[in-house]
Simulated assay, not measured.
Amino acid sequence: MKLGLQLGYWGAQPPQGVAELVAAAEDAGFDAIFTAEAWGSDAFTPLAWWGRETSRVRLGTSIVQMSGRSPTSIAMHALTLDHLTGGRVVLGMGVSGPQVVEGWYGQPFAKPLARTREVVDIIRKVLAREGPVTNDGPHYPLPYNGPGSVGLGKPLKPIVHPLRADIPIWLGAEGPKNVAQTAEIADGWIPIFYTPKSAGMYQPWLDEGFARQSARRTRADFEIAATCHLQITETEDERRAVVEGIKPVIALYMGGMGAKDQNFHKNVFERMGYATITDQVQELFLSQKREEATALIPDELVEEMHIIGDAAYVKDRVAAWEETGVTTLLLSCRSADEVRQVAELLA
């Protein structure tokens, strides 16, 4: 199992010390660096900026929101960055949720599975550069001849010859149908809230996708990149402080993300066995009672999702994640020293 550095997306201000984190990850033998986007910073620019100082690590997005750009625009970003980095891009994408898609990007959210399939298909056509790119699907028709069209759209192929026609495409997916489609059409999967305890739930969904006639990959060459916070602690008090510090983030995703009637992250927690608290956490969070919502998050859930403890405990838990088929563990680290400490422990 490889290690990746998860830089995530920015908060109110650009994060400090990222260059040092990236340099440490490159030097310590991490396999990849990943960035994310929500409704602030984008995922591609930080990779170009900080990735320019690297020569070995893969540079991935986890995830690019499909509705934020047309499929050909996403392909252009990936194509360009792949050239600039000598073929190190991993294109991670996802559908996001209706509040972001319709509220931020002003695009319809309906039929996310069908849209995902079209996006992936168009991007692969761009990268293959076998001819002018067309698409007959209803979501991203190329050329466009719908309302407002002047009727002059022309099928095109990229001016730039892609460095790689097979840039890896990984998809963020949560529900059964989405995970199965990911196993069918993608090169890898970026699950959210994946844990060794919940891993068995996903296996039939993945198997369904691998069994489809059009599947690109098998389980043997399909990548699974799971994110967790890994922190080596020296004392029980230190461990407890880290656990408590993570609970507000879990409460946000369980109770504050998405719409009340359609929170995909909340659905994942329910599938993981925490349905007894999800409604109450959501009600409290949406009522601005965030501390009360956070207080409902059990230690057990934090410890299931993340790896926090002494060196021996961390090594055992990492092995448990690897045994479930995770090929890359994406870690959020706070300092260059922490990056080196983790790399040394798990070397």
Rank of each mutant, 00 (worst) to 15 (best):
T328W: 00
A128S: 15
A211H: 02
G68S: 06
H77G: 00
E238Y: 12
Q341Y: 06
L59I: 14
P46W: 11
N263F: 02
P248M: 12
Y105S: 04
D82P: 02
R271F: 07
L84P: 05
E344L: 06
E118C: 03
G256C: 11
K315C: 09
S73P: 00
W10A: 08
I232C: 13
A211D: 14
M257A: 15
A251T: 13
S335Y: 05
K247H: 10
E244H: 12
I232R: 13
A28S: 13
W170Y: 15
E236T: 06
S287D: 15
I246C: 05
A38Y: 08
V243C: 07
E344D: 10
R115H: 01
A275Q: 13
G11I: 05
M1C: 10
L163W: 05
K197T: 13
A220P: 08
G148C: 12
F44M: 14
P155T: 08
G325K: 13
S214G: 04
A311P: 00
L127D: 02
N263L: 05
P298N: 13
Q107S: 11
Y313M: 13
V342E: 10
P112F: 05
L296V: 05
P147Q: 12
Q99G: 08
P132E: 06
H161K: 12
A251H: 03
P108L: 10
P71L: 11
P14E: 14
T324D: 10
E322W: 06
Q231C: 08
G51T: 04
A347K: 04
S149Q: 03
G200M: 11
D279C: 04
E102Y: 05
A215Y: 15
L7P: 04
Q231F: 05
E174Q: 14
E322N: 13
L81H: 06
E130W: 00
G255K: 01
A38H: 12
A220D: 15
I232M: 14
N267R: 12
E338K: 06
V18I: 15
R69K: 14
E37G: 07
P132A: 15
Y194D: 04
F264C: 09
G60K: 01
V268F: 04
P46H: 07
A295V: 10
A220G: 11
L5Q: 04
M254Q: 08
S62H: 11
P14S: 10
Q231E: 15
R58E: 12
V179L: 05
D31T: 09
V179P: 02
Q282T: 08
E283W: 04
G17P: 03
L156P: 00
T85V: 09
E130K: 11
A24W: 12
K260G: 14
E323K: 12
G258R: 10
G153R: 09
L296S: 08
G106P: 07
M254C: 10
A173F: 07
F269Y: 13
K266F: 05
A19G: 15
L286K: 12
W39I: 09
F30L: 05
I123R: 02
Y9R: 07
M201L: 13
I308C: 11
G175W: 08
E344G: 03
T195D: 06
M1K: 07
Q6V: 09
A19C: 07
V120F: 06
D27F: 01
Y253K: 08
T278W: 02
G209M: 10
R271C: 05
G148E: 07
K197I: 10
N178V: 12
F30M: 02
S73H: 10
